[in-house]
């Protein structure tokens, strides 16, 4: 399961809408071994394409070096599909090379860059991609990590 805080979730969706009709992409880094997506890092789609995304190779090197220095890993690798469903394509699967990462797909096919419309439900789905095998997982949006792991309910003694 992917557990992600509201602000990061919203930032990913906003990035996808902003770049529509091109695909948007990025990473949410987190401390190694924590499985907590904490640091939102939108990346430039060097392909600037509605059907393909690619991190620029220089950006990629800086990103990984930066994460290394902070003992972080890419907990989430996200990108958008702008005309198709939020499900990993064959190309997505062939490139997927972080078995520990949550691959998040957002689809902007219904409403594009618009927001706030009635029924404006964004497709936001998360997958594990290991050895070419795709497994969808639940997404839990928590309000904040500040209050530990009981995000949507507060239990009073």
């Amino acid at each position: 399961m992917l557990r992600i805080d509201r602000a990061t979730y919203d930032a990913i969706v906003a990035h996808a809408r902003e770049d529509h009709p091109d695909e948007a992409c990025g990473v949410v880094a987190g401390p190694e071994g924590s499985d907590r997506p904490e640091r939102f890092i939108p990346m430039l789609n060097a392909a600037r394409s509605p059907t393909f995304y690619e991190f620029d190779s220089g950006d990629l090197l800086r990103l990984y070096r930066d994460m290394d220095d902070r003992d972080e890993v890419p907990v989430v690798v996200y990108h958008s599909h702008t005309a198709t469903e939020a499900y990993p394509s064959r190309t997505d699967i062939s490139y997927a090379s972080e078995p520990e990462a949550h691959y998040v797909l957002v689809s902007t096919r219904e409403h594009g860059a618009q927001t706030g419309l009635a029924g404006d439900e964004v497709e936001f789905r998360s997958f594990r991609i290991v050895d070419g095998q795709v497994t969808e997982e639940d997404v839990e949006v928590v309000e904040s990590y500040l209050f530990g792991h009981s995000p949507t309910t507060v239990v009073y003694d």
Partner: peptide, 11 residues
């Protein structure tokens, strides 16, 4: 020398 997996994909 640094080796990194490309991060790419597409629909």
């Amino acid at each position: 020398v640094t080796i990194l997996p490309a991060v790419a994909g597409g629909c």
